[in-house]
Amino acid sequence: MPFIDDIIDYTSLSVVGLEKNTGKTECLNYIIRQMSYKNREIAITSIGLDGEAEDFLVGSRKPKIRLNKGVLFTTGESHYRLRRVNSEIVEVGEEYTATGRLVTAKALSKGDIIISGPTTTSMLKRWVESVTESHSVNLAIVDGALSRSSHASPTVTQSMILTTGAALSLNLNEVVRKTLFALKLIGLAKSKRVLSTSLLEKERGVWLYSTVDKKELLLYPSAFNLTKESVEIEPNQIIFVTGALTDSLLKAIIEDRELAGKEIIVRDFTKIFLSPNIVQLFEREGGLLSVVESSRLVALCVNPVAPNGYSLNSNDLIEELSYSSNLPVYDIFKC
C-alpha cells in the first residue's frame, strides 16, 4: 500500500495541507483504514478544528474523519457530544480549549467525528506522549488546520505527509512551483554546526553565534524589531533565529553587507515564513539556510480536483512532482 509501510517505523505523524481542500482529510481516512487492516493501534487528534461537514471558510462539502473500531481519538467536549460513533471514554483532560476539555475515547464501532484537539504545541506534545505511552498506541496522528503547521514540527511529530493539489492553483505549473518551494523548506538540511544548549534555550531574539569561541551576541531583539545591536561581526559566526524567520528579517540580513553570506539557522521548517523570491535572492548572495531539527517527509499526496470542481490531470501532476521532488507522490483518491 502506498506509503503505509513507510510510516510504520514512526510513532507519530502529522498530516499537513498546503491549502484547504488538498485532500488532507481523505489522506487521513486512508491512513486510518490501512492501519486498521494492519492491526496497528492508532490515535488521532487535530491542532485545529477538523471533520466539519461544511468548510467554514469556503463553504464546500468536506469529508468527515471516519473512524474504525479500535481507533483512539481526542476531541473537545462539545464535539464529543456530537459524535456519530459508539465509543468508550478513557480520559477527560483538565485543560480547557474553545470546545471544552479534551476527551479521549476509543471507537467501538465504525463512525465519524468532528475533531478539535489541543490548541498549543506544548499540549500537543503531551498528547503524543500520553497516547503512545499510557495508551500504548503504535502511531499518534495529528491533523492540522489551515496555515497552522506547528504540529508538524519535528519536535512534536517524527514524520509528516504533505497534501497539495488544484486548490493551490488551476495551473499545473503553478501548483508544482508552489509545492516545490514548500518541499524545499520542509527538506532543509540539519546544520553541521553544533550550537550550545544556552543558545538553543533562548526564547527571543536573533543571535550571532561563533562556533569557535561559543560567544553569543544579540543581533536583533526580535524578528519584529530589526534595530541592529552594535556587535562585533566576525567571519566564523552563524545567525540563529529563535522564533520566526520572516521576509523582512531575511531582507535586513541580505541588505547588511557585514551579514550577507552567513549561515542562518532556524529551529525547524515550521518557523519559516518566507516568499520564494527572497529565498532565491538570499541564496544568490551565497547564504545558507539550515535547521536545528530536520523533518522526515514520508510522502506527498495530491488532490487534482479544485473546490470549484475543475480538475487537473492527476497523472501529469504526479509525474511532474515526483520527477522534480524525488519523493513518492500519490493521488489519494485513487489509493
Partner: peptide, 11 residues
C-alpha cells in the same frame, strides 16, 4: 448526566 460526567464519577 452525559457520558463525560458518568466517566468522571466512575473515575
Amino acid at each position: 448526566a452525559d457520558d463525560i460526567i458518568l466517566f468522571e464519577i466512575k473515575e
